[in-house]
Design a protein around this nucleic acid. Structure first.
Lengths: 339, 339
DNA sequence: TTTCAACACTACAACGTTTTCGCTACAGTG
DNA sequence: CACTGTAGCGAAAACGTTGTAGTGTTGAAA
């Protein structure tokens, strides 16, 4: 086994000082051509590479970005990571990923762990539990220590930092407007419980669109789902007992589940009702019928978040002006809506 | 801004030595009750947490696992990461994720970067390009430096290390046997080009099952796909020009694409032909018809890989005995196969 | 001959931590 | 009084690196 070689070992071997080795490898003019070549040749032979940890300690920079997300087995979050990783990579940064599993405690523990020197900054999306508790002290704490934080998608107004979001309300509004423009008046909504920020905003967009078009809001057409694994009953009863000609779901899982359950009751999408989902993932693309969605570009979101974080990291003045970037969404029309 | 406090600062503030502070916080018996309490109170007040980087440098352990995978926007890899993260977390490890984007160069660069002190070991799945080039020097190099490596799914026999795989050949064999047991004789295969190790193995299982059952192999029923974004023609022509009663796809994307293209030609699954895919992902579950698959439990694979790596890391003797764990697969029957 | 610059190199501190070893002062023992 | 033991603390090294501030030698100008 050939362990990694250090400056010290090279120095000893060549009978020069550590400084000389370090400078030779950095092509310092203080070192004679002769010595430089000797050292470089030796270093190459033994495949010398500086130790990142030692550099991090010295420079007080790790060139590492911490990502905290609720879960990774979720197409949207995976695309965001992918986007972050692209930009990080282009700028010589690594990403270290922690999953909160939607748990407040895990979110706190992971952040505190990484904040102790492991990362230069954070990109995070809040866990459900954190949003529910409205307890953001761990994030505040980290920001107050001078570590930059960028929040995306599931954000909160209670923390001042850079943010990347989509205009959830507007996007939902646009989707509903699309339905209305096609002459649909009875529009059902499949949404989450209110404490999930994005669910709430999308619901608001739905309500706003109806109101502005003078359509009465029918509470029977609004289904709020807490637990995705346990929502069949509610959706089934909606489809069976209510009459509607269009359905808007705040995520693609709700959308595809509704379509499947409709099939069971011999109702066909889009013949019996049109469907638009949210988040343009694999499911929407490949289900039959393929589902029209409000496309939320995760890659773009991740890239933007990473760019904002790195910009802040590489700028030396502390800038207290935080910005919130809005990533545009797009209504992607597929087979689940009549044209 | 309240920067992180160090031992040195506490020492200065309380007018004791750094050693005393360190020992106090570790409840050393060398320190008087009095001093200990004073230090601990102060540390708590200023929220002292030891600096991970300094610890890593001192202990020559980072408590970090490097994960190198081809891409993350891929349900299977996301589940594997999820599994790795679970076990890592349980054992106080963090995970740092790098994506090779199926590129040999990026795989090499990322590994070399992380190997310079950033991680204690690696869990990786080979990029397509690496498998094609059969160049594994970067992995060999890292192993020879004494850094443990665990490979999963896309592995190679040319590198000696711990591995976690499924029995791809057997799983494919079982799927084909299932078809044959239902009386199907004309079985089509949608596979990858041969250099993708798992594709090759699954193809071998298909061939073996046919041979053992005395069914003649019809090359026209075997379609090898290089590029997923550009495979429609080949699959369409298979469906249009060949006659078959069952189709086995080596991944779920191929499976769902085939079903969609069949629909276009007014052929229905499973009425016109049955389909079994590979990798039990979101698509298989939610497409219509839902797709029967050989389920490849990514979480389990990730957990196992992480366990193997951590075991090796925490055991002090160097053990040259490498093992290859086989994760069992399961045939999950859904709507795409007739019963 | 003195002075000084240029050259080629080394020593050392610093980053934050742990741990071994050593030191001092005081109590106890014979 | 001389010695030993010990409680309580501090100094210093080590991990690997970089950059600043020296150090010693040479040769040339004054």
């Amino acid at each position: 086994m050939r362990k990694k070689v250090t400056l010290k070992q090279i120095a000893k071997e060549l009978d020069v000082s550590i400084s000389t080795v370090s400078k030779s490898l950095k092509d310092s003019h203080e070192i004679s051509e002769d010595t430089r070549q000797k050292v470089q040749a030796f270093a190459k032979l033994y495949n010398y590479k500086p130790n990142n940890i030692a550099l991090s300690l010295k420079n007080k920079k790790t060139k590492t970005i911490g990502i905290i997300i609720p879960e990774i087995v979720h197409h949207f979050f995976a695309t965001v990571i992918s986007g972050i990783e692209q930009v990080a990579n282009e700028n010589g940064y690594n990403v270290i990923v922690c999953l909160s599993d939607e748990s407040f405690d895990k979110e706190v523990i992971n952040m505190e762990l990484l904040a102790n020197g492991s990362t230069d900054g954070f990109i995070l999306s809040l866990s459900k539990e954190t949003q529910q508790k409205k307890d953001f002290h761990h994030i505040q704490e980290i920001i107050s220590q001078g570590m930059p934080v960028v929040m995306f998608d599931r954000v909160t107004n209670d923390v001042f930092c850079d943010k990347v979001i989509i205009d959830d309300q507007q996007a939902a509004y646009d989707a509903i407007q699309f339905f209305i423009s096609r002459g649909f008046k009875k529009i059902a909504l499949l949404t989450t419980v209110d404490y999930v920020s994005v669910g709430k905003l999308r619901t608001d967009g739905y309500l706003k669109a109806l109101r502005e078009n003078g359509i009465e809001i029918n509470e029977d057409l609004i289904v709020k789902i807490e637990d995705i694994d346990n929502c069949s009953n509610k959706i089934e009863s909606l489809i069976k007992n209510q009459e509607f000609d269009a359905l808007f779901a705040v995520n693609e899982l709700f959308a595809v589940t509704a379509i499947k359950l409709a099939n069971k009751q011999d109702k066909k999408v889009p013949d019996d009702f049109s469907v638009i989902g949210f988040t343009d993932g694999i499911i929407s693309q490949f289900s039959t019928p393929s589902i029209s969605t409000v496309s939320q570009n995760g890659i773009k979101m991740g890239r933007k978040a990473a760019k904002m974080l790195i910009d802040r990291l590489e700028k030396d003045e502390e800038d207290e002006l935080y910005t919130t970037e809005i990533i545009e969404t797009e209504l992607v029309l597929r087979e689940s809506t009549t044209t």
